[in-house]
Amino acid sequence: MDSEKKLYTVIVHSEHRAGLLSMVTAVFTRRMLSIESINASASSIPGLHKYTMTTITDKETIEIVTAQIRKKIDVVNAQYFTDDEIYQLEIALYKVKTSVIESTPEISGLIRKSGARIVEVNPVYCIVEMHGRSEEISLLYNELRPYECVIQFVRSGRVALTKDNTERTSEFLENHEALRCRRKAESNKN
């Protein structure tokens, strides 16, 4: 059903110019859609930045929101995906009390089982690092919580690649450039 709410991942490619991120987030703000996570960094396409954002909404809304983002000048492309259409990854860091880890052997088991690793140890705390899908990161957090051992916890925004065989953004740029050349040739002829 179109009105069913779920988590969507919106991937945006834009020129690397001051103010563009706020232009993009303003489209969410207008509908008071909260952004669950956001990651912004240089993309593989020269000069372009890539934002990966997640939000919980329905299909109808995300469709309009992405179109309104894509329409902005200096935004090259914006697309939305459900979780089954992307490979996604998040990084998380957990600061865990060393004393509890030492006194509770199950904790090391949980950490090992989840594929996380301990990257820093001192007498007060250990830093556990993990990367995985969002739900895996939440799972480890929820498993650790009952032991009241997590002092701090942070997770990055989600990054994602599409399962598509092509990069639509590069395609768009190539097609647009080709159209420009064709039109130029036509107007030269006339």
Partner: peptide, 11 residues
Amino acid sequence: DFVRSYLAFPE
């Protein structure tokens, strides 16, 4: 007369 992100007159 060209902005690469902006298809002013789509075909």
